[in-house]
Nucleic acid binder design. Structure first.
Length: 502
RNA sequence: GAAGGUGUAGCUCAGCCGGUAGAGCAGCGGCCUUUUAAGCCGUGGGUCGUGGGUUCGAUUCCCGCCACCUUCACCA
């Protein structure tokens, strides 16, 4: 709405504008500059005994109103909590009460008054002064709750997922559990930083715009730099830059940042998502397994006070150690076939007998990957490490010390979803070049997710990268687990949406 | 990208085997100075997602389109 035509607004919005005009006539600033408060709602509730009868100043958004002529009850909400207010004409004065009569649910107000408990036993601020701080011009969904048979019943919840995602600000105002989820998300990231910083690792920032994308198998977003007249890609992983830093002499570096993958959107995928990558010199993937289970458990303890969490009706237990299952043993266990050392054709027929569809250009690694996805991953509910992957699947991982067909790689699974991926990093530049070349061949063959050859990265390896363990961890998915969220969109404040058609 | 589902008032929903729509809350007016889904009385509000088609007549039936949800594909 570029130009505003009041006749286009609905009745409720028209009335709000009229009230605004009335306030202006009364010389009331409906968009105040500041309000000096000395308590939050939660502080008043927590310190009720000490604050009883004492004056407090609080501010917040009106969430309910029950007017009784010359007095009214309502609830105001600030970031901490919700608290009842009681406004009486004979206390706040005629002028302020006249303003109060123009207040709607959704307005932001400041209250100075004394702390009491009502007859019904609810902590309430009896207003002595009332100030309008911000006039609301758009009706807010009014969610009501009632206790029935000890159960909290919610009426008229703001529940339309599309509206909730498109207008997350409304979702946050109205749905407390949504606020809680994002507070929890912040705590998870803070706890992770605290853990990694405590180990002495250095948090760094590497390029989002990359001339050559790498470090994962995915299609990128492509963009263009005008001044340089060149194509740039939004990163799909941080890996190759972080390893350059290990070459440079840092011995532990991590980055928490957005990665971008030009793939489909579903309950566990968003085109931009948050990843933590960590590289530690002189260590291998066994070290990293220990670190992952310790780190996740520490985060759980920090933010939930427990190693156990309920997720979608089932209990997850993050207490270390987590089971470690070799990939081919897992296939044996869940698919009932031994696929170790099998040729591409043998894998192909195995896939067929397991009713798994495969593409003609897939190599043996890709076919195996598909079988694992279908037959193994759904079984990995409790935290589990799947380790020792075939070399074809992992062009950046070091060959297994006991078996050249495998690499020293693991992925951790929880609730059937991958939450981390790690390996002993390949630091032999000759081997690395060969693996890149194999990827290029796959790209030729039609695999548009095969990785690009990065000459500068190879050059860095030629200078010598110490033995290094590397890890990537999906933050969004971790937060989903710890907040019992079924969709990644529930843990991303503004998930990717198609633009609304106007 | 495919299939299925959904789209009706600010919010949550009902309804219509074709005759231009209802409820609760929110709103507006009135009464009410301890209420809390406040209450009581009265009352306004909708191009029924969008564009076509069939029909005397479409919110309802048919087709296209858009958005969202679910499952699948791709992927983490």
């Amino acid at each position: 709405m570029q130009e505003e035509h009041i006749e286009d607004l609905n009745d409720i919005m028209k009335v709000r504008r009229q009230k605004l005009a009335k306030l202006q006539e009364m010389q009331v600033n409906a968009f105040a500059y500041a309000f000096e408060r000395d308590h939050t709602a939660q502080q008043v509730i927590d310190d009720f005994e000490a604050l009883q009868e004492k004056p407090v100043a609080i501010a917040g958004r009106i969430m309910s109103l029950r007017s009784m002529g010359k007095a009214a009850f309502g609830h105001i909400m600030d970031a901490s909590s919700r608290i009842q207010i009681y406004v009486r004409q004979d206390q706040v004065g005629d002028a302020a009460f006249e303003v109060f009569n123009l207040v709607d649910i959704g307005d932001i107000v400041g209250i100075k008054g004394t702390v009491h408990k009502t007859r019904a036993g609810e902590i309430t601020i009896f207003a002595q002064q009332f100030v309008l701080l911000t006039k609301n011009l758009r009706p807010l969904p009014v969610v009501k709750e009632r206790i029935e048979d000890g159960q909290k019943v919610t009426y008229d919840a703001f529940a339309d997922t599309e509206l909730r995602y498109r207008q997350r600000y409304v979702d946050l105002i109205v749905n407390k559990n949504v606020r809680d989820t994002f507070v929890m998300r912040s705590k998870v990231v803070t706890a992770m930083r605290r853990y990694l910083d405590g180990k002495g690792y250095l948090e760094v920032e590497t390029p989002v715009l990359q001339p050559i994308y790498g470090g994962a198998a995915a299609r990128p977003f492509t963009t263009h730099h005008n001044a340089l007249d060149m194509t740039l890609y939004l990163r799909i992983a941080d890996e190759l830059y972080l390893k350059r830093l290990i070459v440079g002499g840092f011995e532990g570096v991590y980055e928490i940042s957005k990665d971008f993958r030009n793939e489909g959107i579903d309950r566990s995928h968003n085109p931009e998502f948050t990843m933590m990558e960590l590289y530690v010199a002189y260590e291998d993937y066994s070290f990293m397994m220990n670190l992952v289970e310790e780190m996740i458990n520490t985060i759980c303890q920090d933010v939930l006070g427990s190693s156990k969490v309920m997720y979608q009706g089932g209990e997850l237990d993050f207490t270390p150690p987590w089971p470690r299952l070799r990939l081919f043993d897992a296939i044996q266990k869940y698919a009932g076939v031994d696929l170790y050392g099998k040729s591409r054709d043998e894998l192909r027929s195995a896939a067929k007998s397991l009713h798994i569809e495969i593409e003609s250009f897939w190599d043996s690694g890709k076919i195996l990957d598909e079988i694992v996805k279908e037959k193994v991953e759904p079984h990995l509910i409790q935290p589990t490490f799947l380790c020792d992957y075939p070399v074809e699947l992992s062009p950046l991982a070091k060959r297994h010390r006991d078996d050249p067909k495998l690499v020293e790689r693991f992925e951790s699974f929880v609730a059937g979803r991958e939450i981390s991926n790690a390996f002993s990093e390949l630091n032999d530049p000759i081997d690395q070049r060969g693996r890149f070349e194999q990827q290029m061949a796959m790209k030729e063959a039609g695999d548009d997710e095969a990785q690009m050859l990065d000459e500068d990265f190879l050059k860095a390896l030629e200078y010598g990268m110490p033995p290094t363990a590397g890890l990537g961890m999906g933050i969004d998915r971790l937060v989903m687990l710890l907040t019992d969220s079924p969709s990644i969109r529930d843990v991303i404040l503004f998930p990717t949406m198609r633009p609304e058609m106007l």
